[in-house]
Design a protein around this nucleic acid. Sequence first.
DNA 1: TTATGAGTTGAATGGCCGTTCAACATCGGC
DNA 2: GCCGATGTTGAACGGCCATTCAACTCATAA
Lengths: 186, 186
Amino acid sequence: MADIAIDHRDAEDIRRRQLVQATIESIADVGFAACTLSDIAKRAGVSPGLFAHYFGDKDGLLEATLRSMAARLGRAAAARLRAARRPRDRIQAIIDVNLASEEFDRRTSSVWLAFWGQVIHSARFKRVQNIYQRRMLSNLRHALKQIVPHGDAEPIAIGISAMIDGLWLRATLSGDFELDSARARA
Amino acid sequence: MADIAIDHRDAEDIRRRQLVQATIESIADVGFAACTLSDIAKRAGVSPGLFAHYFGDKDGLLEATLRSMAARLGRAAAARLRAARRPRDRIQAIIDVNLASEEFDRRTSSVWLAFWGQVIHSARFKRVQNIYQRRMLSNLRHALKQIVPHGDAEPIAIGISAMIDGLWLRATLSGDFELDSARARA
DNA sequence: TTATGAGTTGAATGGCCGTTCAACATCGGC
DNA sequence: GCCGATGTTGAACGGCCATTCAACTCATAA
C-alpha cells in the first residue's frame, strides 16, 4: 500500500516534469505571448485538458515552470558551492553557475527573459523570483565579507550580480555566445 | 495648401504620439500579455478601430511604440554627448543617460523589459533593438579608444554596457531605486 | 471475469481577442 | 447652406483561447 502510494507520487512527478518541460520548450520556441495550452499539449503529446488535472489552470502551470527553472539553477549553484572551500572560489562558483553554458543556452535564456517581463505583473511569479534572487545575493555577500571590509560587501555583491545579469542579458539579446564570462572576473 | 499639408502631418503626428503613449502606459500597467487594443483605446479615449487607420495592425502599433522609446533614449544620449567634450565625459554621459531616473522609472523600465521578452521572437522588434544597441556600443568604443589601448576598447565597452543593463535590470526587477549608478563608475 | 477507480481524452462552451466596415461627425472651401 | 474629404466610431464577425466535463481506457483488486 505504501509502495503504491509512492509509485503514484513518482508517476505524478514524472508527468509533471514532462508537462513543465514541454512548457519551457513552447515558451522558448514561440514566446510568452504565443504560448498556448494547445501548443504545449501538442509538444507533450497529451490532451489540453490534462493541465487542469495537474496544475489547476494555466497560471499554475506557468508558476510550476518558473519554480522548476529556479530550482534547477539553485541545485546547480549548491553543487558548485559545495566543492568550493575558499571564499574567492565560492564567489567564482556563483558567477560560473549563472554563466555556465548549460544554463546559458539560447532556449533557457529566452524563457527566463520571457518570465522576467511578466514578473512585475504577477505576485506569484514575483515571489518565486525574489526567493532565488535573495539566495544568490546572500551567498555572494557572505563570501565577500570574508575577503573585503564589511561595509564594502553589500555594494560589491550588488555589482557582481548586476554584472552577471548584464552579461547574460546582453548575450541573450544579441544572440552570440562569447566567453565574456572570463572577462567578468576582472 | 502647403500649410494644410503640414497641418495634417502635425495632427497625424500628435495623434500617433498619443496612441503610442497610451500603449506604453497599458504595457506598463498590465504587462505585455494582458495588453489589448481595447485597453489601450480606453486609455487614449478613442475607439479600438482607430489603430487600424494609423498603424495597420496591432503589431505595427507595438513596433511604433518600441521605435518611439528607442528614439527617445537616442535623443537623450545625443543631447548629453553634445555637451561632453573629453572622452571620459562622453563615457560618463552614456552611462548617465541609461541610468537617468527619467528613463529609469518603473513604468518605462517595465515596458523595455516586456519588449525584450518578445525581441527574440519578432524580426521587427529585433531590428529596432539592434540599431539602438549598436549605436550605444559604437559610442562607447569610440570614446574608449582615446583613453585605453586599442585592443582593450572592445571588451571594456561590452563590460560597461553589460554593467548598465545589469544594474538597470536588477533595479527594475527588485523594485527599489537605489543610486547604484554611482557605484557603476568604479 | 468483473468491478473499481485513477488517469486521460477531446469535443463543447463561453468569452474575449484583433480586425473590419458601413455609418457618422466635423469642418474648410465653394 | 451645401459638399466632399478627413477623421473617427462602435457594432459585427470569425477565430482562437482557457476551461470544463461526460465518457473512455486500462491496470489492478476482488
